[in-house]
């Protein structure tokens, strides 16, 4: 520990010196960086994080090792990042909205604005789909079934506060339906749970369902947005506003998070790499087109603002639905 402090001080002094000469010091990592994906393999966070990590490797000159550490809606993995040494070698990933609402849910005492540097890459939309062998052909039919059997039809999600759960809660708010919430370790396990027939409906993200929709194992009924979604190899999924015109939901941003307290040059270097590499990444753009996501890179205050636009209503949605433990007000998230 002593050695760490000494070396940290030395680095700091060095940085102060160099800062006088040039504006920024570059960080040259000397060992692999661990990126914790706090969800199961194959889900939305896993997909985009692996892709972004692959793009960043060359720019940072080191390996980025992806570690899946699922549990409790990503709070288990996120906690281990917070507990790790703040040396810049352990990063978190996921949806900004999750990170921002752990506090509201009482799952983890962390604040996205105070504790994290946020780097966003894509925005995702939720799709409501059913197992292909269920009788529901349209959103209308599913809605009627929900109303007829309150609390009986199961919706598979990646857990409390996951994107899928937000989708299900939004549906509940606009239609008054009651559902059986079945949680999994991630978006991919939730989708698999739906195609295995264990659950009937899923409200997870388009990127997680894309393959199964194309494989005709899932039947998409509506995209939870005001615009239709065109998926390569399938066609167009109608927007939910076709049935519920007042439905409102913004883009759910995903990215990589570095805890505050790491050396400044880490942040400078990653900022630069994010702007130059991720901001122009062909691979991520292609991924977004193929799987129904939106390419939306940002970092710094810009990213914090974008994330806020989505998690603010979500935090209040939980609170009003009685699913939150702490009022968003007390955490500095004003009512929209």
């Amino acid at each position: 520990m002593k050695r760490f402090i000494i070396s940290a001080l030395a680095l700091l002094m060095l940085f102060a010196l160099v800062a006088g000469v040039s504006a920024q010091a570059t960080w040259k990592p000397n060992k692999p960086i661990n990126v914790i994906v706090p969800w199961g393999a194959g889900g939305s966070t896993d997909q985009i994080t692996r892709l972004a990590a692959g793009e960043l490797e060359a720019a940072l000159g080191t390996k980025l090792v992806i570690v899946n550490q699922p549990g409790a809606s990503g709070s288990v993995g996120t906690k281990s990042v917070l507990d790790a040494p703040r040396d810049g070698y352990t990063w978190a990933s996921g949806a900004a909205a999750d990170l921002a609402t752990y506090g509201v849910q009482g799952m983890l005492d962390t604040d996205i604005r105070k504790d994290w540097h946020v780097y966003l890459s894509v925005a995702n939309v939720m799709v409501i789909s059913v197992n292909a062998s269920t009788p529901y052909k349209t959103f209308d039919e599913l809605l009627a079934a929900f109303k007829k059997n309150p609390g009986k039809i199961s919706i598979a999600t990646a857990g409390m506060s996951s994107a899928g759960h937000i989708g299900a809660e939004l549906l509940k708010r606009y239609t008054g339906i009651d559902y059986k919430h079945v949680t999994y370790d991630g978006g991919n396990p939730a989708v698999i749970g739906t195609i295995s027939g264990e659950a009937q409906v899923t409200t997870q993200l388009a990127v997680e369902q894309a393959d199964m929709i194309r494989g005709k194992k899932l039947r998409p009924l509506a995209v939870l947005s005001d615009k239709p979604l065109t998926l390569q190899g399938y066609g167009t999924i109608p927007p939910v506003t076709k049935w519920i015109p007042e439905f409102e939901s913004g883009p759910n941003y995903f990215g990589i998070f570095i805890p505050k307290g790491v050396p400044q040059e880490v942040i400078d270097t990653v900022d630069k790499a994010w702007a130059e590499v991720i901001g122009k990444s062909k691979k991520i753009q292609e991924y977004a087109v193929a799987r129904g996501a939106v390419f939306a890179p940002s970092f710094g205050q810009d990213a914090q603002d974008k994330a806020f636009s989505y998690y603010q209503p979500v935090a209040w949605l939980y609170w009003e639905a009685g699913k939150a433990k702490v009022s968003p007000d007390t955490l500095g998230i004003p009512k929209p």
């Binding site: 409390m160 059986k180 919430h181 949680t183 639905a321 009685g322 699913k323 939150a324 433990k325």
Partner: peptide, 9 residues
């Protein structure tokens, strides 16, 4: 249960 979750969870 106070958070509207199934008691079995």
């Amino acid at each position: 249960a106070d958070r509207n979750q199934s008691v079995y969870s």
